[in-house]
Design a protein around this nucleic acid. Structure first.
Lengths: 221, 221
DNA sequence: CGCGATATGCACCAAAAGGTGTATTTTTAT
DNA sequence: ATAAAAATACACCTTTTGGTGCATATCGCG
């Protein structure tokens, strides 16, 4: 495993953004004990960390709390990924809120770690995140899998479309009219229409709007 | 954590599907040592396991190899999830192939474990999978996160649709015609049409097929 | 209060789409 | 080789759609 943000010294520069003083200082102390990490800074507010980066501060990884005064951790993640895409953001929280998990991921977080993680495991996860891993608890993973299944359901029904019909279907989804289809495939518009009508029968629909929806929702294309 | 398939005795009935004899028997022995698990059976082929279930065999969890003679592990997972949806399928493999990971998940696998996992960790993962967890290695998790980001991209553009236009847009995606829209919303068909034409202008499209595609692909609904 | 945005409605027209029927050629499978 | 399936094409007709212009009522916000 090759560290994505390896520093010459081999140490990872870690930043901590956490508003509770005790937790913040506890993390700073505990994580600093491990030779693989160097604590680049610990901040009570996301804005402080952003300013740190803007004024030349360096960090490979940041542990980001979600509940923060001012800018919350998810908004901060989004901003950070926009301006410093190489930075690895790990969400560190006590909650397993489904929406927060998904929002974090969409915002660009690399991992989602729970605060009850043991220090040794936490360090392993941080190091893994600097490589090609994404530390995620099994519980969070379950939520993500469910979401992924929703987003990309398995093909079930086979509508037995012919190769030609599939081509035409793709173009219909692209928004082509009969005439445009005819030109593209060098066939008569009436033929394109016939293909589409056949597709309608097979998919049990009766308009382009419906066929586009069915094709996209069922991953027919 | 409440075991999803807890048996009266508290033991989880585990099945193993793995074609390599040494690996299969090694797992049967190693996992049987742990008091939380009971080995319900070990099979060289997915078909054998399916027959086991068909003839009254019971299992809470199955460790499923991907590369099998005859029916492969992913097809088997799909079939098993269809007929025994309560069964927890854990894919156990040496590969981290992106497509295999996604196909497994879509097929209904609960976890994706690599064969180089240490026995103790493996047992922990199996037990976690019987509850609300999904054991997944950080590397696999990274792949899944990337996929999820692709599938559910963060909203970027704001087309500033009004509430009414959004309602109408949803119905257009459902395939309603002007007339049907008019009936549903108790407005004139001409008004429904006006709304749709406004939507076209805002989304820069000019047909229902295009607007359905854009709405679905950009998550406007 | 009044302005602008929103929602509503109608008329008119050309283009596109949907539906049905028929027919020939080509490909595929038995 | 022969039958079935697929791809091609045209005619005819109705409905829907896309586009434009115009007009009125309503609502929110400064």
């Amino acid at each position: 495993m090759i560290a994505r943000n390896a520093r010459p010294g081999g140490q990872l520069a870690l930043a901590i953004v956490e508003d509770e003083r005790d937790v913040r200082e506890g993390l700073r102390y505990l994580l600093g004990l491990d030779g693989r990490l160097r604590i680049a800074g610990a901040f009570a507010k996301a804005e402080d960390f952003i300013q740190f980066l803007e004024t030349g501060g360096q960090a490979d990884i940041v542990l980001m709390d979600i509940h923060l005064p001012g800018m919350d951790g998810i908004a901060a993640t989004r901003l950070l990924q926009g301006r410093w895409p190489e930075l690895v953001v790990l969400i560190l929280t006590i909650f397993e809120d489904q929406d927060a998990i998904l929002d974090s991921i969409k915002a660009g977080a690399t991992g989602y770690i729970l605060k009850n993680t043991k220090p040794e495991a936490l360090i392993d996860q941080i190091v893994s995140a600097s490589g090609d891993g994404s530390p995620i608890s099994p519980t969070v993973a379950r939520r993500i899998l469910e979401e992924l299944r929703k987003a990309a359901p398995a093909r079930t029904v086979d509508y037995a479309l012919t190769a030609r019909e599939l081509e035409v279907l793709r173009d219909v989804v692209e928004g082509l009219t009969y005439r445009e289809l005819a030109d593209k495939h060098h066939i008569a518009a009436s033929t394109a229409k016939k293909h589409i009508l056949h597709i309608y029968q097979k998919l049990n629909v009766s308009s382009k709007a419906e066929v586009v929806r069915k094709a996209l929702e069922e991953g027919l294309i």
